[in-house]
Nucleic acid binder design. Sequence first.
DNA 1: TAAAATTAATTAAACGTTTGTTTAGTTTTA
DNA 2: TAAAACTAAACAAACGTTTAATTAATTTTA
Lengths: 225, 225
Amino acid sequence: MFSFKRLFSFVSEMKTPIEYSEKQIAIINAAEKLFAEKGFDGASVRDIAQEADVNVAMISYYFGSKEKLMEAVFEERTVNIKLKVENLLQDKSITPIQKVYILIDDYVDKFIHQQQFHKIMMREQMINKHTPVAALIHELKKKNLESIKTLIQEGQKTGAFKKNIDIVLMMTTMVGTVSQMLTSQHFYRSLNNMEHMDDMEFQRHIRKKLSTHLKNLFKQMITNE
Amino acid sequence: MFSFKRLFSFVSEMKTPIEYSEKQIAIINAAEKLFAEKGFDGASVRDIAQEADVNVAMISYYFGSKEKLMEAVFEERTVNIKLKVENLLQDKSITPIQKVYILIDDYVDKFIHQQQFHKIMMREQMINKHTPVAALIHELKKKNLESIKTLIQEGQKTGAFKKNIDIVLMMTTMVGTVSQMLTSQHFYRSLNNMEHMDDMEFQRHIRKKLSTHLKNLFKQMITNE
DNA sequence: TAAAATTAATTAAACGTTTGTTTAGTTTTA
DNA sequence: TAAAACTAAACAAACGTTTAATTAATTTTA
């Protein structure tokens, strides 16, 4: 009767990317949207089912529970979220500071394109509980930090970067600035009289704004100018 | 029977600081703690009542509803949250950049001393709904920004500051960096092997770290060095 | 290949809890 | 002795989840 569920946990344990059916994807999309808007407790499974246009029971049937659905959202959305530093490190034709610039653009892009999911991540980090989801975030952050550390050290070897750089603090500023912009974008929009802009145009605007702003900050933080 | 409640909404409309009884303060403190930990929907009124060591009915009795309790938390905690820029502006014996430094320290201090409440504010901003609480945040931000604008303009007149400064973006970085540090302080702590530190010592550490970091950033952003 | 058997997908309804709030009564205070 | 403070119990609504039944799809059998 419930063989599908059993198949699932098996595949999940293997850490193989799970192939979801149309309905399952619809549920994950709806969950992402409503978790981002209302938070985990604020979004009911009935809300999610309606948004996904499926029967409520399908959520338990496919994912086991609301909690597990959240985990599925995370596993689905974190698959391609890693920063593309690995390839960057090899490339000898790009200067260290240019690599940092590319990384900033990459991060800003990822954040803007996955606003809903990043909102969920922010909320989950606030809760500060030892859930599977919290572990996933921790792991993700640590890996990203590790890669950036080697990238910075490369610049330090060539003498282009300063010796004493607090990378964690630097990342805190990057992540924090972008998060804060996302969180308060309506405030930012009304303050700059940009209500007339359509969403796409506005997002292109803040993308550019954040990109140049962070590049300026980072340049002065890490280079010997 | 419910004259107390009626007295309340009256006082609230007058924008006069409300004097709460011991029990009411206990409820507000408990609500702040649990709203910060679990979010508005995650914290039940029974949780809050237990934490405050009062009967569940007292919450409705004193505050009318859970929603209104949240508003009470906000009105109580935002009374003294405004940055002390007003007094700063008058003082002629302090240079503009020193004023900015004082402002940064003031903000970092307020944030660290009211971590729980700031967590609630962050969550509420994410929801992005036109609630009384959202309006309160908006108003607060606008006033702070207004004061800072005049402070910056003062520095620009004397020629100490650059001409083109994006104040909103600057504030986004300050608020964002501090918020992100608060949100991920456990991550920061484990990364820097500071688990042995007691909480007070650790908070003094990040207070100092944030302060010098933000001052460096701001100096290079706004002065002609 | 057609029929039968089996499994998977889907549904409406019901489950037992928990939710925020109210009631009706009691105790305390002034 | 009237108003305020406080309580245990009850309230209906909403919650996440399960059940039992039905339809759809797939596999096995003859």
